[in-house]
Design a protein around this nucleic acid. Structure first.
Lengths: 165, 165
DNA sequence: AAATATTAATTGACACCTGAAGTACTTCTG
DNA sequence: CAGAAGTACTTCAGGTGTCAATTAATATTT
């Protein structure tokens, strides 16, 4: 019995150190998986709401949100950067929105390669309605989290955003 | 002076309350956008690495990861739940992996509607190689974040995950 | 046991997304 | 100023994702 115990004591410290390193490595993966799980869930809720209430999608909403903050219009490439998706993708989403009259492409006379994409009047109207509800959904999703914790999260995620360039 | 101060005291609480509410609402959206930005960036890195190093994709990797943790195999529906995607999607991904021999569908003799999906021997080998590198990528992405902050994030995101059912 | 409902998985239509290749335009360089 | 290099955007193929409808098997009800 005593022998048994002594043996354990000799071995454990090493085992602990290893476990700790292991846990630390695991910690990063764990954090990553948890981030992913959270955003997926929220994304699903928002996507479903957008579909049910406005028959639109998250990427469309996202693109319009970018344009709303840039009344002078944005280039396709700027949209691509801000939405963190590829150019080909932006072309497709813009095509759809343009076909529905929510968005317009305007040529730049100074450089005929570029388009400036803007919200149409109709697009602005629709976006404002969507944005108001969208804000409500997000607020409700987070209503159980204290302001303090939200601020902590914004802070910590800011660190990560910085780090992950 | 004293009057001035008193007046302010009478008025400020209301103004503050409103600002606080407004900021709080904004805070939730801000938090949501930041979460999204972070996960998008990390996802992009991981996806690119998976493509470059193993000519595979994140969903495939994710599915295999689920199976690795469940050697007895998982039903399509269980995969769907755990991956937080729809059933139709799981069918497609499984089809692809099965075609490449990384995964097998086994019928349940007790209920012939269900399949148990398992990693093949080849699938296990490949997954282990991928998982090792994947862990490295994530560790590197987060290497600038202290263990303390990582733990805080895991904790706070746990709260959100809980909340967002 | 036959009719009905439920459940597991697949299919098909449509949108998203990437990466690579292509087109049109601009800028750089000799 | 002509050719090369670069830039902005589009197109295309292939994988991912949803939702709604379908098929096949099992459970429930009468």
């Amino acid at each position: 019995m005593a022998k048994e115990k002594k043996k354990l004591r000799l071995v454990e410290p090493l085992a602990d150190a290893e476990t700790r390193i292991h846990d630390d490595h695991h910690l990063s993966v764990r954090l990553w998986l948890r981030m992913l799980a959270c955003t997926n869930r929220i994304e699903n809720v928002v996507r479903q709401n957008l579909q049910a209430r406005f028959a639109t999608t998250l990427p469309r909403f996202d693109l319009m949100a970018q344009l709303e903050r840039a009344p002078q219009g944005l280039r396709m490439s700027e949209l691509s950067q801000r939405m963190m998706v590829t150019g080909g993708n932006v072309t497709g989403i813009t095509d759809g929105l343009e076909k529905e009259g929510l968005v317009v492409r305007e040529v730049d006379p100074a450089d005929r390669r570029v388009f400036y994409v803007k919200l149409s009047a109709e697009g602005q109207r629709q976006f404002r309605r969507m944005a108001a509800e969208h804000e409500q959904w997000v607020i409700e999703l987070f209503e159980g989290i204290s302001v303090k914790h939200k601020n902590q999260l914004v802070e910590l995620l800011g660190e990560i955003k910085q780090q992950v360039r």
